[in-house]
């Protein structure tokens, strides 16, 4: 019964198990080592896929630890699709609850940043908003603008300096002590073909978060100012335009109606 054979064969691949009945070699009725080649291929190809997606995180914990954590993750969350490009989206949450990694309080946030980078890499292509298009809008209409997110856009917020730690472990800047240990927020964008991590100033995550949710520019500005008095609108608008975080704007008709009422 080939179906039963495949079930038994598959069952032993995600845990240590002897070769299933009916599996043999020319010189052995129970070829442990030969069966282990398959088990090892499964383990190695999936841990490699995760290491490829989270290279800075692997550097932070070391290859041996990363492999063990990846294997623990794979056992609980094996891929449900042959599309390994997106495998590991829930690995950061797993790492956040992974007891041996508990002391590395910033690890999960660095992993979230790396996951966002890979998603951005494979996101649909789209032209970013042309700054000149904004320049031509009448000043009294600006507040009603609603922005359409670029498919690559993510906002990653951390109560640790996750963006700096990522940059240090991704080879973007030298590894050094971080004297000013504070939370960091960042945009992950891919305006053309290169994925970029753009650090955000105070309340930037609030501002971009509200815009990405479809709130008007006036609403997002108001919310960000409420969150942090240090919010600098022109700085954030410059980031918005330079990073290509959005593709287009539309005037929010509903909102206008609500204002009038």
């Amino acid at each position: 019964m080939p179906e039963a054979t495949q079930s038994a064969f598959a069952a032993g691949l995600l845990k240590a198990a002897p070769p299933p009945a009916g599996v043999m070699a020319w010189n052995s009725p129970s070829p442990h080592r030969r069966y282990s080649v398959y088990r090892n291929n499964v383990s190695a190809s999936l841990t490699d896929a995760l290491a490829a997606r989270f290279p800075a995180s692997e550097r932070i914990v070391g290859a041996e630890f990363f492999q063990a954590m990846a294997e623990a993750f794979i056992r609980v969350h094996p891929p449900r699709s042959p599309l390994l490009l997106i495998y590991g989206d829930d690995f950061p949450d797993f790492a956040a609850a992974f007891e041996p990694a508990r002391e590395i309080v910033y690890l999960a946030d660095v992993m979230r940043l790396e996951a966002a980078r890979t998603r951005a890499y494979h996101a649909a292509d789209a032209a970013s908003l042309d700054p000149q298009a904004l320049a031509s809008i009448k000043p009294d209409r600006l507040g009603d603008l609603v922005f359409l997110s670029h498919p690559a856009l993510s906002i990653v917020s951390s109560s640790h300096p996750a963006a700096t730690i990522w940059a240090m472990n991704a080879g973007e800047r030298p590894i050094a002590p971080i004297p000013d240990w504070r939370g960091e927020d960042a945009l992950v964008v891919r305006p053309r073909m290169t994925v970029e991590v753009v650090p955000l100033p105070p309340a930037g995550a609030s501002f971009f978060g509200h815009l990405a949710q479809g709130r008007t520019l006036a609403e997002a500005t108001g919310a960000a100012m409420t969150d942090d008095a240090a919010f600098d609108l022109s700085e954030n608008l410059a980031i918005l335009l330079r990073a290509g975080a959005f593709t287009a704007t539309r005037k929010d008709q509903d909102d206008e109606d609500r204002d009038r009422a």
Partner: peptide, 20 residues
């Protein structure tokens, strides 16, 4: 590296986290 025999719970991170 055949088999998943490592006990991850005994593992200690050894990467750059030590110098962070």
């Amino acid at each position: 590296k055949i088999d998943y025999q490592q006990n991850a719970f005994k593992l200690v991170p050894k990467g750059t986290c030590l110098s962070m």
